[in-house]
Amino acid sequence: MALAVETRLTLAEISAKIDEGTRIDVDEARWLWLNASAEELQQLAYKVRARFHAPGECTYMVMRIINYTNVCVAQCDYCAFYKLPGQAGGYVMSHDDVFAKIDELIALGGDLAAFNGGFNPALPLSYYCDLFAAIRARYGDSVEFYALTIAEFMYLADHAKISNAEAAQRLKAAGVRWITGGGSEILTEDFRSRHSKFKYTVTEYFEAQRAIVEAGLKTTATMVIGFDETLDERLEHLDRTRQFQDETGGLASFLCWTFKPYFTQIGGIEITTAEYLKHLALCRIFLDNIPRIRTSVLTQNQQALEGLKYGADDFDLPIEDEVTQKAGATISLDFERILSYARELGFEPTYRHVALAAAKA
């Protein structure tokens, strides 16, 4: 049936829908990927971008991902970072360790820390509540933090034998304002059964994210491409994300990045920047209810800024992320060079402060 629909589509018809502000469906998104050129996708994505952002405008953040522990029992085959409990090299950061990393972030001009670790069975929910409360007490509104990924949040609630709603409220009481969409990778059950069978189901993922939104916390959507996922799996991920945003309006942004296969169990060959940019354009076209689309400097380096021409409007300048660095990502602290490249592409980047005190200054 899908093939019969696809054969009746034309680029002119899809382009007309986009001009009118009409939503495209999954069949039309599939047709675009299979038939439209990169240049045509770029033009369509820029039309959707213009609904939310002025031409030539873009924003960026300076942030650090703090990998507070590398002990994890999830055993995802695409991860080069984790250590099993009791394995040599495992660690858990103290409050002072975390403070030192945040202090360095501030010294480099950043105001956002994101936490990403793993499913560490030795860490109770109180470890996280105490840590986040200590950060809020020490830094107030001068620094913001993305407390956990949704995958970690789900593990904590399960490990504590409490509901998602109760876990969200306890974290909120500790000063947490954000729990991001990390741990999504590709949101299909088949993908998870192939690569992360000890993680939670897609249905459970969205149930947890809904509880986060209902608790009054902020959240985001993420996606990682370049494993062995099919086109249909990519489209299912996007469709589920768009439906969730229709239902909740809780997604502040969408970030897509590419899988780094080096030193991982699954291995493989990294996808090209050209494929990433084409996918980014399709995301911008399809996700018509998410204003902010972010391109990934962490995994694409300076080339990620080409994504601003493919519908993205925002990016971050990371100073650390052990998870992706262990799998082959490289990080540059030459922020001015990266920002200069954005200007060469015709964009004027503006710092997007996340911390409340910095945003008001």
Rank of each mutant, 00 (worst) to 15 (best):
K47H: 11
A329G: 04
K17R: 15
A45T: 14
Y78D: 02
T248R: 08
A147N: 10
K199E: 12
A174E: 07
R30N: 05
G267Q: 10
E144H: 09
E236H: 01
E229P: 11
R49Y: 12
H195K: 01
A74Q: 12
S163F: 09
I65T: 15
T350F: 02
Q245R: 03
Q245D: 08
G307D: 11
Y82M: 01
V71T: 11
I225A: 02
R30K: 13
N35M: 08
L3E: 14
Y341E: 02
T273C: 05
A168K: 05
V48N: 08
L41A: 12
R294W: 02
Q209N: 03
V297F: 11
F244R: 14
P318V: 07
G311H: 01
L345W: 06
S142T: 15
L84C: 01
L187D: 05
A45Q: 14
L125C: 06
A165Q: 11
E275L: 14
P318M: 09
N120E: 02
D19I: 00
A174P: 00
L156A: 09
F153P: 03
I269F: 13
Q302L: 13
R194G: 03
Y60M: 11
A168Q: 06
A281E: 13
V62Q: 09
T69C: 13
E13N: 06
G250R: 01
T230R: 13
T248Q: 10
Q243E: 14
G21M: 07
A122H: 12
R343M: 04
A134F: 00
S163Q: 01
I271T: 05
L44E: 10
V354Y: 06
Y200K: 14
G328C: 08
E189W: 06
G183E: 00
D130R: 11
A134S: 15
G307Y: 07
P318G: 03
G89M: 06
A88N: 08
Q243F: 09
K172W: 04
Y341L: 03
G307M: 11
K309E: 02
G118A: 12
D130W: 05
Y200G: 02
V176K: 00
V143D: 11
F227R: 04
H195Y: 08
D321T: 03
Y128V: 04
F198C: 05
K172Q: 09
F153E: 02
Y46C: 15
R170F: 06
Y341V: 07
D27V: 09
I162E: 09
R210Q: 07
R210E: 10
F286K: 03
A80Q: 05
